[in-house]
Amino acid sequence: MIFAGEEYGTGSSRDWAAKGTQLLGVKAVIAKSYERIHRSNLVGMGVLPLQFKGSDTLAGLNLNGDESFDLTGINDNLKPQQDVQLSITRKDGSRQAVTLLLRIDTPIEVDYYKSGGILPYVLKELVG
């Protein structure tokens, strides 16, 4: 996972920004807010864009990188803009639950995500 602050993915669109993220094995990006196009590109590559809610921030989580993370609430009935639960397990065994907003924004994006991204989605459509 990648954690970030506000306006993740600003700047001109780079064709490999979302593709490269996916190829590194990143399953989800969790940020305070997203640049419009990069958010859509992440979904297009099958990477979940998740967003902190309310006053939650990355800084408030006090992460140092040795934690383990679970994301729950992701299933076949995925809905745009639904809640997803992030569970943080720290090295000392303590746990913390955080509710995140799923930034899959439209029904077609749900289909893209379920297929693993736009490319496999279109392949499936074409070969029937």
């Binding site: 990648i2 993740y8 934690e67 993370f69 679970d70 992701i74």
Partner: peptide, 15 residues
């Protein structure tokens, strides 16, 4: 659900 994931990077604002 995604289980046992690790943080690859913790980044700031305006990445």
């Amino acid at each position: 659900d995604i289980k046992g994931a690790k943080a690859l990077a913790l980044l700031g604002d305006s990445v």
